[in-house]
Amino acid sequence: MIINHPLLGPRDAAEFVYLGDASLIDRPDWQDPLAAEKFHDYLYLRDNPVGNHRELWYHEQGDRSWLVVTRNTLTHEIIKVELATDVARKRGRSR
């Protein structure tokens, strides 16, 4: 698979480390009264869909950026690649 890095251009997926579902960006609030339940769901449960899947890849053997890759889990086709910091900022997660 070739991941089209927003800054570096097309890079081989073997340069990256895979973390998993991009919902891992949305860490629950630790002060929430239901924090224990929410952290359980955050840490252990996954949607695991067939078809398009937004997921976190880390460019370990490159510029060490985190990417959000939208990829089809049935065909391995990569549809969209974004910098994770941009995605997180849009959701108000990052400074």
């Binding site: 698979m1 997926a13 895979y18 998993g20 695991n48 067939v50 997921e55 889990t73 049935l74």
Partner: peptide, 13 residues
């Protein structure tokens, strides 16, 4: 292979 997949085939690395 190390990434979510429902394809019954893998990649070369």
């Amino acid at each position: 292979d190390g990434y979510n997949s429902y394809a019954q085939r893998g990649n070369l690395p």
